[in-house]
Design a protein around this nucleic acid. Structure first.
Length: 875
RNA sequence: GGGCGCUUAGCUCAGUUGGUUCAGAGCAUUUGGUUUACACCCAAAGGGUCGGGGGUUCGAAUCCCUCAGCGCCCACCA
């Protein structure tokens, strides 16, 4: 029996993954089965597997493997994302380490470096997913910068532009004066900083009076174009319609009214500098103010800065304060804590700056996407608590800034020509020339006169097409793959990209394909460490994913992740969970060791206890299967796993196997052996989506299997009816066995000594052979003449059980035990009686509740009677 | 500051429309056990005023109000 070695996860993982690949089990082609499709959230091409990926992809694999077994044509499409900003940053850094500055090389050279980098690191994360067991159709692997994907993205851009949905406009961007580049909002770090709030007096035009404003950035008064007050602020009613004069500059600017201004803050008067503050920009647009840009790209002042031209913004701040002081318009200074945006890369204080960008109008095209989630439920968010967040964002959606000042990405297909920077939108230079000629009627234009836009598209502008482009559905909308696989079924991703990605895919799916791209969106939580801290490289609290797999085995890590992973809830990951997974794998392995080690003897007949226990397990299994299926329907994956876990560990191992396993070195009968084997395999089927490797290994250990019988493609068990009464009476069996076990513990009686157990009512409980076997009884029968003085008793349901004991009965303890049981029951009875005597209860409660209460009373009374008798017998 | 959500055992979480003994699971802990698949094990036990307060109701973990603490998203306030 010791011949079976321990489970070797490393070798099993290698062997079976190769076996699945070699047999093409992951691959999908359209056929006449129903499709079940998931597109992977493409990880960054240069990324490495982290805990978030592990969680996310384990879930997808569980869903896809179960679907495969359920008979669907399961197709999981893998791929990677070019991730403009992240990848470009990494390439820039690498070049820098090699002494190359991005500014010094051409776009083409840079892109060559970027492609080298991508080829070098691009496959890593996908290989890591294989280690985890992910059953993706690798033949379908896609990359968002693949030529066909590139074409699709450009086609969509042109299409939207021609519909008038894409336009060029001005936007306030985060400008890094040191790096001289724009930064995305994610790259700006806000730091709490102590600054100074300066109170400055502005003279009212044609009056001797003045008003006082407060500002943290006095140098920006050079760009002031208005003073704004709250229309409801009674202190300043007299200023309505007036103008003021900007100190130093001498410019006359209007006083405007807007409820944006908070009368409580500062003086209640706000100076408006539309070119250098996002909020002021809004005011500027709303009130049609002049935009006065006072800075050069390097943070020095331009000609609008008058005598400060060419000096750095922070030096100017100091000098201007002095000048204002000398003009006696600086009223006072106050310390002021506020948040200042700094560049993640250069640490420079960012300068909000107006710049020209490409935008996509979102309002109209997002309406169907709002309805799909919130009204028709064609797309479901799981859990649906995210519906509110979704609504909030979608109803306040603003135009999408789709251009980025980067090189790595899909280059914007705008071609400029002529002195006025006129442009055309086209999929190629040749086409652009054609368009430019017809637009200008200038036949002398040549390709050399055209200059393509330097910017690339936001990464999400390709990702939002992902469920379509993986099937080439933009270029060839009616191709057979599209017809078969689109729309897909489930999407599994994190809530952090609900808007960046999920919402936009829903929008794109409807607008470009007429159908929403998926039906269900399973939103996972963030993976945190066990102290609740977000896992990150900087904190160093993120375990190495591959090391985890090596230490515990992929199956165990998957179980560890699933055990506490509720949809939408953050996952507090503790390595001990993997240990739990490993223990489980060990348990399963050893149950196989027991079964496979049995010697079969055909001539012996099946013991009654085995027959009874198998009958119970058959019901138990079907009940569990129905529950598991229901959990899957509700995407309660960890509950489904826990149900499998308990079915195998408790019901199968601790109860069934304990009954059917033969005595030491005794043989087992064939009938029992076959049945146990059968259920062992049924269990493996339920286990497979969660623990693919060990389940396949154990499945294939069975003899005479051929490849067509691989577990991965074996049908999921069909749920059959079960008899709840059988399950209920087995629960009573467990209590009786437990009662005997407690007795043994209390009186320190080992398992080997066989006991007598008597009951005092003739009602049948069933499973008597199981009881005899598991409780270690030599006699189990009815009697009405048992003395409490010579036996210990316990009660299950309405039945009383006695175990005769010769010497050691501790009467005092027995009595105390009975009395405390009695006290509990009497308290229980009283509360029921009290309820029933309450007329309001009788008048209001539904009949069935009253009947229940009455039954409780009669049951309790009966139990009390027997208990009292037992107690009096003890005296 | 605006919006949303959360608070149940030491930890991570279940708890369907208020109603059976409804206060649960897993882990952890404690106690006892092992030549007979597995100490990566078996058997049993302890542990919660369901965040505080108030209300509705015959009846509240569940519905309402309020307070406190935590989290997320958005805006980041001159």
């Amino acid at each position: 029996m010791k011949t079976l070695p321990n489970f070797d996860s490393k070798s099993a993982e290698k062997r079976w993954y190769k076996y699945w690949l070699d047999n093409g089990y992951f691959n999908s082609k359209p056929d006449n089965k129903k499709p079940y499709t998931i597109v992977i959230p493409p990880p960054n091409v240069t990324g490495v597997l982290h805990m978030g990926h592990m969680l996310n992809n384990s879930l997808q694999d569980i869903l896809i493997r179960r679907a495969r077994m359920m008979g669907y044509n399961a197709c999981w499409i893998p791929g990677t994302d070019h991730a403009s900003i992240a990848t470009e940053a990494k390439v820039v850094e690498k070049l820098k380490n090699n002494g190359i500055d991005k500014k010094d090389i051409s776009r083409e050279e840079f892109l060559n470096h970027a492609w080298d980098w991508t080829e070098q690191y691009g496959g890593i994360i996908l290989d890591q997913l294989k280690r985890l067991g992910c059953s993706c159709d690798w033949n379908r692997t896609k990359f968002t910068l693949d030529p066909d994907m590139y074409k699709s993205v450009i086609k969509v851009f042109i299409n939207l532009y021609n519909k008038g949905l894409i336009y060029k406009g001005f936007r306030m961007v985060n400008w890094d004066p040191d790096a001289q580049t724009t930064l995305s909002d994610e790259e700006v770090i806000y730091k709490e900083t102590e600054g100074t709030l300066y109170y400055i007096s502005y003279k009212i035009k044609n009056e001797d009076n003045s008003i006082i404003i407060a500002t943290t950035r006095p140098e920006t008064i050079l760009g002031d174009s208005a003073i704004c007050i709250n229309p409801k602020d009674k202190r300043f009613t007299r200023l309505h319609g007036k103008s003021v004069i900007v100190p130093i500059v001498g410019r006359t600017i209007p006083v405007i009214l807007d409820s944006y201004v908070d009368p409580e803050f500062g003086t209640g008067c706000l100076k408006v500098t539309p070119a250098h503050d996002p909020n002021d920009k809004n005011l500027g647009e709303k009130h049609k103010l002049e935009f006065i840009d006072i800075f050069n790209p390097d943070g020095t002042l331009n000609s609008e800065g008058l005598h400060y031209q060419g000096q750095d913004r922070f030096i100017v701040r100091k000098k201007i304060v002095e000048e204002l002081k000398s003009m006696e318009v600086l009223i006072k200074k106050e310390k002021h804590i506020h948040k200042v945006g700094t560049s993640e890369r250069t640490k420079a204080i960012i300068e909000p700056r107006i710049s020209e960008q490409w935008f996509l109008k979102m309002k109209d095209i997002s309406i169907p996407a709002i309805n799909a989630v919130l009204k028709t439920e064609e797309v479901r968010l799981i859990p649906n608590k995210f519906n509110n967040t979704y609504r909030h964002w979608m109803e306040n959606i603003t135009d999408w800034n789709i251009s980025r000042q980067l090189w790595w990405g899909h280059r914007i297909p705008a071609y400029y020509f002529g002195k006025n920077n006129d442009f055309v939108i086209a999929e190629s230079l040749e086409k652009a020339l054609e368009l430019a000629i017809s637009k200008t009627n200038n036949k002398k234009l040549t390709i050399g006169d055209l200059k393509q836009d330097e910017d690339v598209l936001d990464t999400w502008f390709s990702s939002w097409l992902w469920p379509i482009t993986v099937f080439d559905g933009i270029i060839h909308p009616d191709n057979s793959e599209m017809k078969y696989y689109y729309p897909t079924q489930d999407l599994v991703t994190g809530p952090d990209i609900l808007f960046f990605w999920v919402a936009r895919m829903i929008i794109a799916g409807y607008n470009f394909q007429g159908k929403f791209p998926f039906s269900n969106v399973y939103l996972t939580g963030l993976v945190r460490d066990k102290d609740g801290k977000k896992m990150s490289k900087q904190l160093g609290n993120s375990p190495d994913a591959i090391k985890l797999i090596e230490n515990y085995g992929a199956d165990s890590v998957r179980v560890g992740l699933m055990l506490s992973s509720v949809a939408g809830n953050d996952l507090l990951f503790d390595e001990d969970l993997c240990k739990q997974g490993k223990n489980f794998a060990n348990k399963i392995w050893n149950s196989y060791r027991l079964i496979s080690g049995c010697k079969i003897k055909k001539t012996i007949s099946q013991p009654k206890a085995s027959k009874e226990a198998l009958e119970w397990y058959s019901n138990k299994f079907n009940q569990a299967l129905i529950i598991i299926n229901d959990y899957f329907d509700k995407y309660r994956v960890s509950d489904a796993l826990m149900t499998v876990y308990k079915l195998i560990w408790e019901d199968f191992c601790s109860w069934l196997l304990e009954v059917v396993k033969p005595d030491f070195q005794s043989p087992i009968d064939l009938k029992t052996f076959n049945k146990v084997n059968y259920y062992f395999e049924e269990n493996l089927k339920l286990l497979h989506p969660f623990m693919p490797f060990i389940s396949e290994e154990l499945w294939q250990k069975k003899e005479k299997r051929n490849s067509s019988q691989a577990l991965i493609i074996t049908p999921w068990p069909k749920a059959k009816n079960f008899d709840i009464k059988v399950l209920e009476s087995f629960e009573i069996v467990k209590q009786i066995v437990g009662g005997v076990r407690n007795f043994r513990k209390e009186y320190n009686i080992g398992q080997k000594l066989q006991l007598d157990l008597f009951y005092n009512k003739k009602t049948s409980i069933g499973f008597s052979s199981v009881i005899i076997k598991l409780a270690g009884l030599k006699n189990y029968s009815y009697t009405n003449s048992i003395s409490n003085l010579t036996s210990s008793s316990f009660r299950v349901i309405k039945q009383e059980f006695f175990i005769p004991i010769e010497k050691k009965l501790n009467i005092e303890e027995e009595r105390n035990k009975l009395i405390s049981e009695l006290n509990y029951l009497e308290g229980f009875l009283n509360s029921s009686l009290k309820k029933l005597s309450d007329k309001r209860f009788i008048n209001n409660a539904p009949n069935e509740i009253i009947l229940l209460e009455k039954r409780k009373v009669t049951d309790a009374k009966e139990k009390i009677k027997t208990l009292k008798k037992s107690i009096s017998n003890l005296n």
